[in-house]
């Protein structure tokens, strides 16, 4: 045996370094595992559960499971696709996602992952929650209807921007995103479009004002290539319809 550590992912060997998770090793090897709350710039969170894989027969989140030599990991199986599809369906019924009218459509990672796992409509009953939209900020509008509670904005604002603008409050199905000001309004914070937190949302919940529907249908980020190739909206260059400021 050579000194290189590896596990198999859908029967292909994937090398890894000690301390890497299955997700990190797969990404480094160019193998896509669908994910939403994972973002390579942040410590893993493990809440969306889209990245589930089977590790030696047990279902686990690949973004939080350490890679270990000899692991047998399965990702693209029909069973896992159905579970991932089910989780995506849950996200779509929990919030209010009006993709055909949504400005983010076509460049939305949530939508792209939903297509990737084969979800077209949800069989589950829609919750139709009432969530107000917050347009108090001059440059940004936040639409809580599209929030999937991945906490990327929470983590970015707290850990990178040092502003702690966002938080999740309450528990269970009552859990929801809030803005940390007495009024609860984004406009009362120091939030700015150059913040990391403004770049990370995988859905259309945090949207820039004064622009929109910039790319015609057919040329939007995920129209051109599958999320499997393009990867995270937060990693794609802005010129391509992604979020990363060059």
């Amino acid at each position: 045996m050579s000194g290189e550590l590896s596990f198999t992912l859908d029967n292909q060997p994937v090398p890894f370094q000690d301390g890497q998770t299955i997700m990190e090793a797969a990404r480094a090897a160019g193998v896509y595992i669908p994910h939403l709350c994972f973002n390579p710039d942040f410590a893993p969170h493990g809440s969306c559960r889209v990245c589930l894989v089977k590790v030696n027969g047990r279902t686990q989140a690949s973004c939080t499971t350490p890679a270990m030599a000899g692991q047998v990991v399965q990702s693209e199986t029909e069973e896992l696709r159905d579970i991932r599809r089910g989780i995506l369906e849950m996200m779509f019924v929990e919030g209010n996602h009006i993709c055909p009218a949504c400005e983010k459509s076509g460049a939305c990672q949530l939508q792209a992952v939903a297509y990737y796992v084969g979800m077209l409509a949800s069989p589950f009953t829609y919750f139709y929650p009432r969530r107000a939209l917050d347009a108090s900020h001059p440059d940004v509008v936040i639409d809580f209807n599209r929030c999937i509670l991945c906490e990327l904005c929470v983590r970015a604002s707290r850990d990178m921007d040092g502003k702690n603008v966002f938080a999740v409050q309450n528990r269970g199905i009552q859990a929801h995103l809030v803005i940390n000001t007495p009024s609860g309004k984004l406009g009362a914070t120091t939030f700015s479009i150059t913040d990391k937190a403004a770049q990370v949302c995988p859905t259309g919940a945090i949207m820039m004002k004064n622009q929109g529907y910039g790319s015609p249908i057919g040329l939007r980020l995920y129209d051109r290539e599958s999320v499997k190739i393009v990867g995270d909206v937060a990693q794609a260059p802005e010129s391509a319809g992604g979020r990363r400021h060059e």
Binding site: S47, R49, F124
Partner: peptide, 21 residues
């Protein structure tokens, strides 16, 4: 279970409510 889910992960947060309904 709807009442007691912590709300962190999608399958439990949403699944408990869907199942309950």
């Amino acid at each position: 279970f709807v009442h007691e889910s912590c709300g962190f992960c999608t399958p439990c947060r949403v699944g408990t409510s869907l199942l309950c309904d």
